[in-house]
Design a binder for these strands. Structure first.
Lengths: 251, 251
DNA sequence: CGTGAATTTGAGAGCCATCAATCTAAGTGG
DNA sequence: CCACTTAGATTGATGGCTCTCAAATTCACG
């Protein structure tokens, strides 16, 4: 099922009927190779994209040619749903790995908007999750040190992948280069390398062959000042994340 | 009319009927004094807030007590509309000046969602504008220098205030302290002071008594790598902003 | 005119960028 | 199977941007 991971383990799940409506809104699927740009900024679009498999980036370019990521998308993310409403993107969509996506024509979304207000509200929710993550990224860049930023990002990816069953809470695949991490955290690849070494030497986590192993989830979260509230996970999943971040008894 | 500035001068305006539906969704108005916290993070909410007059902040707290802004709201902004969908806020809402707000119960929004799908989509649009601005803030923090960040922020406020008729493109009120600016740009108040002096000495803009005067809009925008696309202004307003940023002939 | 908040200025330190070289790993072709 | 290539990771040295701490000054306001 292509939309299996959409809203999976968030505060409120889709009903079976809603999920089947969404599933039938998919027109077709498509694959892209790692490194390809899937949608270009400013291109008028009439279709939105659900990420089915692989990782994607949303990134902007500065005038001097540098790139910066504003989001890393995982399977189940409706990566450019906001383009349905905004009519154009203010950033690029890229494939971080080989990816498989499901394409949903905006006409089908119009029908949902007109006939399934509750589902439409769930889609709205999806785009607001994005916004909540953006806010956390703003906080991360504005108030955290390099070490904290990287720790925070790793915790975030761990939690998001946990929600879709692609992390067990202590080990997950993260096929990004250190330059990519730098573009997430506003750091150079050189400094990312130093920070990762420091995290390793602190016994918090290690990173080899695109595999992250979190040795001390609690201290890693504490280092990155990470709390998963902004991901709006359901209770059970939040507790699983919290169990790995030392907040099992809080809230 | 309380909702006069909502979506004013954005790409697609509200129809008269839509605006009157929205207007009648307002339950009552309320005022807050400068410095007050209007809504606390994590508080469950059943009402959303349209800013009618004054400026508000959306800010998060870090564990060590520091504060950081994730948005500055101007009249016409539906400042916590996302709480209608998310059910709780992941940040605080504060009054930067004395403010007047209109309160819209979520029950009224439910009715709009169910019976006015087009208006619901326009509300969705509003929350996506927020997200687009968040992305720009991420870019600003990650890739710009202190000087560029402040210049970018000033251009953004100028454009937003222009859209609601509170700036003429070269002069506008900005009742924030330099500490506030620092919390927007991820800088200390000390460094903000130095940057403002530099902008003044470069002849780009000056800042006295909470009044910003932009002496050279084109170079200020160039300095901050500012382009107003992400504000999704309508053509006429975009041209007015562009006329002040040297892009009148582009696009 | 006094008081506190906000701004300005200075000196020193630290974090991270930059530049550059080395090293590793994975692929490619002979 | 090995030289060659290339992308990515690592390490070192240096410098600059911004923070921190501290004091002086200006401003807003009662």
């Amino acid at each position: 099922m292509l939309t299996r991971n959409v809203l999976r383990n968030r505060t409120e799940d889709l009903t079976e009927e809603e999920r089947s409506v969404l599933e039938s809104a998919v027109e077709r699927t498509q694959t892209f190779a790692a490194g390809q740009t899937v949608v270009h900024q400013q291109r008028a679009v009439d279709t939105s994209t659900v990420l089915v498999q692989g990782l994607m980036t949303r990134h902007v370019h500065t005038d001097d040619g540098r790139r910066h990521l504003v989001a890393v998308q995982v399977p189940g993310d409706f990566v450019d749903l906001h383009a349905y409403v905004l009519k154009q993107l203010d950033h690029d969509l890229g494939a971080l790995t080989d990816v498989r996506v499901a394409l949903v024509p905006h006409a089908a979304l119009d029908a949902i908007q007109a006939r399934h207000p509750q589902l439409a509200k769930r889609l709205w929710f999806l785009t607001l999750l994005d916004a909540a993550m953006h806010r956390q990224w703003v906080m991360r860049l504005a108030s955290l040190s390099a070490l904290q930023r990287v720790a925070h990002f790793l915790c975030e990816m761990n939690a998001k992948l946990l929600a879709i069953g692609e992390s067990d809470g202590e080990r997950f695949a993260l096929p990004m280069t250190q330059t990519d991490i730098g573009e997430v955290c506003g750091l150079t690849n050189v400094h990312v390398s130093r920070v990762l070494r420091q995290l390793r030497e602190m016994g918090l986590c290690s990173w080899r062959a695109a595999q992250v192993v979190v040795h001390d989830p609690v201290r890693l979260a504490a280092t990155g000042l990470f709390t998963p509230d902004y991901l709006y996970l359901n209770r059970a999943t939040a507790l699983r994340v919290a169990g790995h971040t030392g907040e099992a008894h809080g809230r």
